[in-house]
Design a protein around this nucleic acid. Structure first.
Lengths: 345, 345
DNA sequence: GTATTTTGTGAATGCGTATGCATTGTTCGC
DNA sequence: GCGAACAATGCATACGCATTCACAAAATAC
């Protein structure tokens, strides 16, 4: 059996069922005008022939592929695995397919988008990747909505959904301040991503409002990964004249986990006894026993829903929503890596 | 701008470039007969019109979609995230698209396969999911190769690539025997998957050959997840009349990690001082400082390559390879969770 | 210089389905 | 019981591209 075997088409099914090809088409199209009896006849014939409608051919006429493209950077951060899973589940529930594209963290997504455009996807979701204005307009010109997930490009025509990273950073700063931390180390993520920058900014602004001196806040680069944060931490604390901070903010949970392991297992520094720590994201991995991270929860499901709402795949004739910047509040999750301040339950 | 905007087609490009539509098609088809000068003219016109070839329309005539379906169960196990990433990278390098489908662990994959067939994919890769013979023949009948990744269905027409799980289980049993463990606990995974069963079988067979009594080997269910293994471990050790084993085999790394944390952080049992432990997979997470798991490495890249070789997407006319069962040896990675036996470096 | 091969090009056709339109059959209201 | 409204169905065509075929142009051979 070679791969060029002739496939059964709606005409074959029509012949067996004794109806026209259009009747077959209608039998598989919900809401179209067909008698239930005829429909059953067609479905029975289709079953006997192992017929499956050809979505490729169908989308040629409908101009709808029912495919949504999901472009992912940084899969090394489990947060985006959970995001992918959430999108996948949700879209599958609605009978849509997910075309996955992985790009290196921080890389241009132009190639990915061009590939994806070839497939006439109904929408594009972009996480942790750059987006040029040329690609934005290419998508919009051909009527394909594109939504940035947890990314923000100022002045861009592309809409986006993100956690309120700045406010989240402030929440964590407040927690640290309440616990009495006076000096800080921030382990930052990918410098090309606004996510990290916004969190750091909110965090620092609040610290300074709280009376912390700028010279008591240091930043090091953690490369958005466990391993990057792990070794950055060891490097920092191994410097000869280092001033040990009282608190560390890992700009995402996976980095905070790397920091914590470096501190406790390599440097002999206990969390939170000797040093407080917080992350951001609230990934399930950070809830586990060894970490029990204090963090800010990004409400993935809500963010996914908002993203799909902006795509509004069900209403293809509605104009594309441009330049929307939906910010969703994160919630402080108080666990073990910041001691509960005295006087607060 | 609504989504029904009229898209630019190869005819538009042809008109602007002053050539025929077929010339445009040829300009975008590598290896086709066209003068370089004409090609440049066409590409320039295409660029100016933001034209992108419509792969959907093209696959209607070529009967090749350049899409490969990847059906994933159990994304909670990071191993399969790495597998997905490896497939994604490899397929993208070859200019192919990845259609992702996630199914609940242990669930039927029939629906997923039917969906995927609608899109005339060039191949199907199935990880951790059941596969009915009906779906196998539906794929094969329409010339779509399907390969099971790390699954094995005895007597099935579908080909598969897997790690030699039985041999891997034996390797770990040998390591434990060499380290002198006399009593064992096995934390098993999804009972519907052969992966877990094979590993357990090889492990037990070798233990018994090594003189361990059956009564000194206990099995509990860890549900293939960190959380499942974590709580199963606590439950087991909290029973009133429990006999503490000297060694535990977590049938995959993520479960071994759960076991380890439960032991050390909840039960006060030190690894490997009080109790030895091993996993299976060699996921990067298990290499991290808190775990440093002794395990068997599944050679993901090699397995991915073998899988793609069986699909042989580049030679669509070659007959589908049926019933292949490619087993690839795993390698013992000796880290810290089994003490090195005396006399061995 | 003509005969032969190679290369480049355009017109026509097919891929599998959805859908507007026309037609037939059916039901309902009065 | 008659016309109108409506449901069900078939026919024909459009969708955007790749491919085949035929032919023109160019390159090579003699």
């Amino acid at each position: 059996m070679t791969r060029s075997s002739t496939r059964t088409t709606s005409f074959d099914v029509a012949a067996l069922a004794g109806v026209s090809q259009s009747a077959v088409s209608r039998a598989f199209t919900p809401g179209s005008s067909i008698a239930e009896e005829t429909r059953q006849k067609v479905l029975e014939a289709a079953r006997r022939l192992n017929y499956v409608p050809n979505s490729i051919a169908s989308s040629l006429t409908t101009k709808r592929s029912n495919i949504v493209a999901l472009i992912l950077g940084n899969l090394a951060n489990p947060f985006y695995v959970h995001v992918m899973h959430a999108f996948s589940r949700k879209l599958q529930e609605h009978g849509r397919q997910v075309l996955i594209f992985t790009v290196d963290a921080g890389a241009e997504s132009d190639d990915a988008i061009l590939q994806v455009l070839k497939y006439q996807v109904d929408g594009v979701i972009l996480t942790s990747a750059q987006l040029s204005t040329r690609m934005t307009s290419m998508c919009h010109d051909r009527g394909i909505p594109i939504v940035l997930f947890n990314r923000y490009i100022p002045g861009s025509d592309a809409s986006g959904v993100r956690c309120d990273n700045t406010a989240g950073g402030r929440l964590l700063a407040e927690a640290f301040l309440a616990a009495g931390a006076k000096s800080y180390l921030i382990v930052t993520g990918d410098p090309t991503a606004t996510t990290s920058g916004d969190r750091v900014r909110g965090f620092m602004d609040r610290l300074i409002e709280g009376g912390i001196k700028r010279t008591d806040i240091t930043q090091i680069e953690g490369y958005s990964s466990y391993e990057g944060a792990f070794s950055a931490t060891i490097r920092y604390f191994s410097a000869p004249d280092v001033k040990r901070p009282e608190a560390i903010f890992g700009v995402n949970d996976i980095m905070a986990m790397g920091v914590m392991d470096a501190l406790q297992l390599r440097l002999g520094i206990r969390v939170p006894k000797d040093l407080m720590l917080a992350g951001f994201d609230d990934i399930p991995e950070g809830r586990r026993a060894p970490y029990h991270l204090t963090t800010v929860r990004q409400p993935i499901d809500q963010m996914v829903n908002e993203t799909l709402a902006i795509l509004h795949l069900d209403e293809p004739t509605r104009p594309i929503e441009r330049g929307i910047d939906r910010r969703i509040a994160g919630r402080l999750i108080w666990r073990s890596t910041i001691p509960v301040p005295q006087g607060n339950g």
